[in-house]
């Protein structure tokens, strides 16, 4: 298996000039709001995916501390402007405080989304061997929005990216979610899927691909879901390593640059969310987090959840880098799919 060891995040000197491109196109991207608190609970994961920007895997140990969880709960409680909690990882369900955190956020009336990789239901915790088969029922009971990566509606691409056997296991996990009403019209239980290319190319148009996924998954497996988000692979960490090994980094960057779309840039997710790392540091997005590009206030002071101030965070200058070309290419890319 390639690249299962954690790759030390590093910030490269900007080579491709993202901010210069924004200036040239007259695009200004100040934060608009903070309506979503995205928390990366742990880098522990039952899978090792080739595209993973977190470099997550079964041997990672990073976890948000109990103090960190408490602080996030306080932030949610004190700020009605933050209406959504987006839990990610790794596999966020492998954090020992996951269930209690979800229940607390739901009790506060927040809309909770979980980035659920499907297979963790069946694999369980790779370190403690704890079963996670209860997750669909837990999600349904708390009416959590489930957002699941499924790189393709066929086995070939999915297993190439996420590992042998992942596709079949994902179908099994989706059946369990469907059985409880997830993705079923009228149930109110939302199951969205996430597509990302298996290599250095841009996603197809979201609407057309969603129609393909719906037709194929229904016809071949009897499965249903609500919507499909298309996400562009970011040229960072593990995916970047694969690009470099294949001699594809430069062509991929050229492709992203050539596809720069100001309309997609206007909708980038960093304008409406903040991302919290396992150590409580705040970032403009999950990708900046993995590159250790801290969010800073107007005086360049690093932001953390432990001294959180809504106004100071909202007035921050968003930190950009070359990888941001990934979010602004073509139809755009965000945790909620295309942006243009």
């Amino acid at each position: 298996m390639n690249a299962i060891l954690p790759i030390k995040a590093f910030q490269e000197k900007a080579r491709y000039g993202f901010e210069e491109r924004l200036r040239r196109d007259g695009v200004r991207l100040p934060p608009l709001s903070i309506d979503t608190l995205q928390v990366n609970l742990t880098k522990l994961c039952n899978q090792v995916c080739r595209h993973c920007h977190v470099d997550a895997g079964p041997h990672r140990k990073e976890m948000l501390s109990p103090e960190g969880i408490t602080k996030c709960r306080e932030i949610l409680e004190r700020h009605p402007q933050i209406t959504r909690l987006d839990l990610t990882g790794g596999a966020p369900e492998l954090h020992p405080g996951f269930d209690a955190f979800v229940e607390a956020a739901v009790a506060l009336g927040k809309h909770v989304m979980v980035r659920h990789n499907l297979t963790v239901q069946l694999d369980g915790n790779p370190q403690t061997k704890e079963s996670k088969e209860y997750l669909p029922a837990f999600f349904a009971r708390n009416r959590i929005e489930v957002i699941s990566s499924l790189p393709y509606y066929q086995e070939y691409f999915t297993d190439a990216q996420r590992g042998s056997g992942v596709f079949r296991k994902s179908m099994q996990a989706m059946q369990r979610l469907n059985a409880l009403g997830y993705g079923v019209a009228g149930s109110g239980l939302v199951l969205n899927l996430v597509y990302n290319p298996v290599g250095p190319y841009l996603p197809a148009a979201q609407a057309g691909l969603e129609a393909d996924y719906k037709r194929e998954l229904k016809d071949k497996f009897g499965l249903v879901f609500n919507g499909l988000y298309t996400i562009t692979n970011m040229p960072i960490n593990r995916f970047k390593l694969h690009l470099e090994k294949a001699g594809q980094l430069e062509p991929y960057m050229e492709k992203l640059l050539a596809a720069f779309n100001p309309a997609a840039a206007a909708g980038v997710m960093c304008r409406s969310l903040i991302s919290v790392g396992h150590d409580g540091r705040i970032y403009d997005c999950d990708f900046n987090q993995m590159l250790e590009m801290d969010a800073v206030d107007a005086k360049r002071k690093k932001l953390t959840i432990f001294d959180f101030d809504f106004g100071r965070t909202l007035r921050r200058p968003i930190q950009f880098g070359d990888h941001c070309f990934g979010c602004t290419a073509g139809a755009g890319s965000s945790c909620g799919g295309a942006t243009a």
Partner: peptide
């Protein structure tokens, strides 16, 4: 090959 993938065709 790239254009086919970027417009949503599958390998089959």
């Amino acid at each position: 090959t790239t254009q086919c993938l970027e417009t949503g065709s599958n390998p089959e």
